[in-house]
Design a protein around this nucleic acid. Sequence first.
DNA 1: GCTGTTTGGTAATCGAGGTTTTCACAATTT
DNA 2: AAATTGTGAAAACCTCGATTACCAAACAGC
Lengths: 236, 236
Amino acid sequence: MARTYGGVAPEQRRADRRERLLAAGLELFTSTGFRLTKITEMCARAGVSTRNFYEEFTGKEDVLRTLHDRINSLALEHVTAALDQVADADAVTRIVTLLDVFIDTVTVDPRLPRLNYVEAVGVSAELEEQHQVWVDRWASFIETEARRAAAHGAAPDRDYRLTAIALVGAATGLLREWQAHEPPLPVEDVGAELRALMLAAIMRPGKILEIPGNPGAPSGVEQSSRAGEQGGARRT
Amino acid sequence: MARTYGGVAPEQRRADRRERLLAAGLELFTSTGFRLTKITEMCARAGVSTRNFYEEFTGKEDVLRTLHDRINSLALEHVTAALDQVADADAVTRIVTLLDVFIDTVTVDPRLPRLNYVEAVGVSAELEEQHQVWVDRWASFIETEARRAAAHGAAPDRDYRLTAIALVGAATGLLREWQAHEPPLPVEDVGAELRALMLAAIMRPGKILEIPGNPGAPSGVEQSSRAGEQGGARRT
DNA sequence: GCTGTTTGGTAATCGAGGTTTTCACAATTT
DNA sequence: AAATTGTGAAAACCTCGATTACCAAACAGC
C-alpha cells in the first residue's frame, strides 16, 4: 500500500488527477454548458479514466460545487489580504479596495463569472444553499465596511443588510452581463460603475435631496410612501 | 375537422390543456426543480396525456421559455400601464412607480422570481439569449427614466447604460434572496431598499464628496483610480 | 342507430449516459 | 527475476426517461 509510481507519490498523482478534472470541468461547463457536459467528456479531456473520476467525485455536481466554492474562496482570500493592507485607511479607500480586488480576481478569466453566476444556478438544492451562504458572506463583508464608514461619520447610521445583498446582486448581474456581452464590455467600466454604485448606495443620506417644483409630494423615500399603485396584492 | 367535443371547441380544449400544462410546469419547476421535473409528472399533474403535451410544446425547455417570457411580459405590461398614468409626473415619481409596480407584480407569487431568477438560469443557450433580451429591455426602461430625470435637472447628464444593468442585477439578486429566505423577508423592505438604491444610483453626482483626512488620495471615483492592487492581470 | 373521423390515453420502444467491473500492465519489492 | 499490488483503459451493463405508435372512445353526419 502507498507505492510510488513514476517517481511521484500516489497521493500526488491523485491530487494531479483531481486538478485536471477540475480544469476540464471548468472548461466544459462554461463552453458546452453544465447540462450537456458528459462525464466521459470530462474524463477524456482530463486524461483520466472514469474509474478515477468516481474515486475523486460523486458526480458532475460534485465537480461544479467544488469549482463554485473555489472561485468564491479565491476571491475572498484576495479581498481579505488586500483589506489587511489598508487596515487603517479611510472608509472609502477600503470599500474601493474591496470592490476592485474582487472584480480583478473574478475577471481574470470570463469562465469564472460564467460558472459562478450562470452554470451553477438552479442546479440543485445543495448548490442553491451554497450560493446563499456565499451571498451571505459577501453581504456581511460589505455590511462591515458600511458600518465602519458610518462609525467614521462618512455614512448614515442605519441597517445595511439589504443594501449589501442588493450590491452583491448588482455585481452578479453586471458580471453575468460582462461575460456574455458581445462585443466584450471593458472591465474598467464595469469596475467603475460598481464602485460608484457601491459608494452611492452606502453614502446615500436617509432622505433624498428635495426636487424643485414638486410641491407637497413627500420626498422622504426611506418611508414607505408609494406612488402610482395600480394592482398587485400586498404580501406579508 | 374542427369538431366540438364535450361542448367546447377543439381549439378551446387545446388552449385549456396548454394553460394547465403551463400551470403544472410553474408548480413543478419551482418545487421539484427544472432538472428533476419529468415530462410525465407535468402531464399527470395537468391531467394531459403525453401525446397532447407534444402537440403543444417541443419539450420541457419550451415550457420553461414560455413561462419565463410570460412573467416578464406581464410585469412589462403592468409597468407600462402604470407609467402611462403618471406620464407627466416628475422624474422621482416615475422611477418610484416603475419600481413599485414591478416589485408588486413579481412578488404576488414567490414562484415567479424563483422561476425567472433561479430555474431559468444556465439551462440552454436560447434561454440565456432570452434572458439577455429581457435584461436589455428592463435596462432600457430604467435608462429612459434616468435620462428623463437628467433632462429635468434632477440627475447628472451621463451614460446610464451600466447603471441600469447593475440595477436590474440588484433587483434580480434581491428577489432571488427574497424567494429563498427563511424566515421570509418583508416585501416592503425589499421594495424600499431597491427604491432608495435606484434613486441614489441615478441621482448620484459625478464626483463623490471629499473625505477629510485623506491627503493626496484622488477622490474622483469616476476616474479609474484604483487602490489596493495586489494581483490579477488586467484584461482588455 | 350506425359509421367514419377525430381525439385522447396507455403502453412499448428506443436511445443515451451514468456506473461498475474486468482485464491487462507497469512498477516496486523481496 | 518473480510475485504482488496499485493503476488505467475500455467495455458491458443497467437504469431511466423521452418519444412514438397503437388502440379505445367520443362525437357528428347520415
